[in-house]
Simulated scan of single mutants.
Amino acid sequence: MATGADAFEAIVLAAGSGSRFGGGKLLARWGDGVLLDGALAAAFAAPVSRVSLVTGAQAKAVEAAARAFAVRSGQAGRLHVVHAEDHAEGMGASLRRAALDLQADCAGAFVFLGDMPRISPAVLAPLAEAVRAGAPAAAPVFEGRRGHPALIGAGLLPQLESLRGDAGARAILKELGPRLALVEAPDDGVLFDVDTPGDLDAGRYR
């Protein structure tokens, strides 16, 4: 865990309605808990001072699940919850809301997706090291495919405040071209997300 000035923070996007899943996706059973637990576990494992959960649809239930997991994990003091009133607009709204709440001296923000429960903690420190070494942002790759979480360096954080639509930070990263640091991930957890109930079973046994 990183603390003090120039520490990184983590953002966990958990505002979506999960319409393709049939609703309630982040609260679906996963392991000994719910799907959201996997993303939170990765976020808490990152070298960050604080984890900001962005709620939207099912805000009260999602927040309750997150707080319960944080307590079980001994991480209650690191969890910060914000609500994106305009979450229906898409991922851009959630990132805007989270960016407005980052500490002024934040060195950068990891962006985790709430429906990605298999991020390997092994990839997190190398992402931080790449940004500390001067990269404006960093992202993991597995077998040539870029995945999550992205780490957005301090110089790019103001751009999060003007995002629109459902593309998230994709456009920001694309504009970097070769300046985006790519870190090889140990497995395909950086690519695996849950869209449908069938994805839950596919991901449990990998």
Score class of each variant (00 low, 15 high):
1 M>W: 03
2 A>I: 01
4 G>L: 11
5 A>W: 02
13 L>I: 13
14 A>T: 05
15 A>C: 05
15 A>E: 15
16 G>T: 05
18 G>P: 04
18 G>W: 10
22 G>K: 11
22 G>I: 09
22 G>L: 11
22 G>H: 10
23 G>S: 09
24 G>H: 08
27 L>W: 04
27 L>C: 11
28 A>C: 12
30 W>I: 04
31 G>C: 11
31 G>A: 08
32 D>I: 00
33 G>F: 03
33 G>M: 04
35 L>G: 04
37 D>Q: 12
40 L>M: 06
42 A>F: 09
42 A>L: 09
43 A>Q: 07
43 A>S: 09
43 A>N: 00
44 F>I: 02
45 A>Q: 10
47 P>Y: 08
47 P>E: 08
48 V>G: 07
48 V>S: 06
51 V>Y: 09
52 S>Q: 14
53 L>I: 07
54 V>L: 00
59 A>H: 12
62 V>R: 09
65 A>L: 07
66 A>D: 06
67 R>Q: 15
67 R>L: 10
70 A>I: 05
73 S>D: 13
77 G>W: 06
78 R>C: 03
78 R>M: 06
78 R>Q: 11
79 L>D: 02
80 H>P: 02
81 V>P: 01
81 V>M: 07
82 V>G: 07
86 D>S: 13
87 H>A: 15
88 A>T: 14
89 E>M: 05
89 E>K: 08
90 G>Y: 04
96 R>I: 02
96 R>Q: 02
96 R>E: 06
96 R>T: 00
99 A>C: 05
99 A>Q: 06
99 A>Y: 01
100 L>I: 00
101 D>M: 09
101 D>G: 13
103 Q>R: 15
104 A>F: 02
104 A>R: 15
105 D>G: 08
109 A>T: 01
111 V>W: 01
114 G>L: 05
114 G>M: 05
119 I>V: 15
120 S>H: 07
121 P>S: 09
122 A>S: 14
122 A>G: 01
124 L>E: 11
126 P>D: 08
129 E>R: 15
130 A>H: 11
132 R>T: 11
133 A>P: 13
133 A>V: 09
135 A>W: 04
135 A>N: 10
138 A>F: 04
138 A>Q: 08
138 A>C: 10
139 A>C: 13
139 A>R: 03
140 P>T: 05
141 V>Y: 13
143 E>V: 12
146 R>L: 14
147 G>S: 09
149 P>L: 09
149 P>R: 01
149 P>F: 02
153 G>D: 10
154 A>D: 11
154 A>S: 14
157 L>Q: 13
158 P>W: 06
158 P>H: 10
161 E>Y: 00
161 E>S: 15
162 S>Q: 12
164 R>P: 06
166 D>V: 10
167 A>K: 15
168 G>N: 07
168 G>Y: 03
169 A>C: 11
172 I>F: 02
172 I>W: 01
174 K>I: 02
175 E>G: 15
175 E>K: 15
176 L>M: 09
181 A>G: 12
184 E>Q: 14
187 D>F: 03
187 D>M: 04
189 G>F: 05
190 V>N: 01
193 D>T: 14
193 D>S: 14
195 D>S: 14
197 P>L: 08
198 G>M: 12
198 G>F: 13
199 D>S: 12
200 L>M: 13
203 G>C: 12
205 Y>G: 12
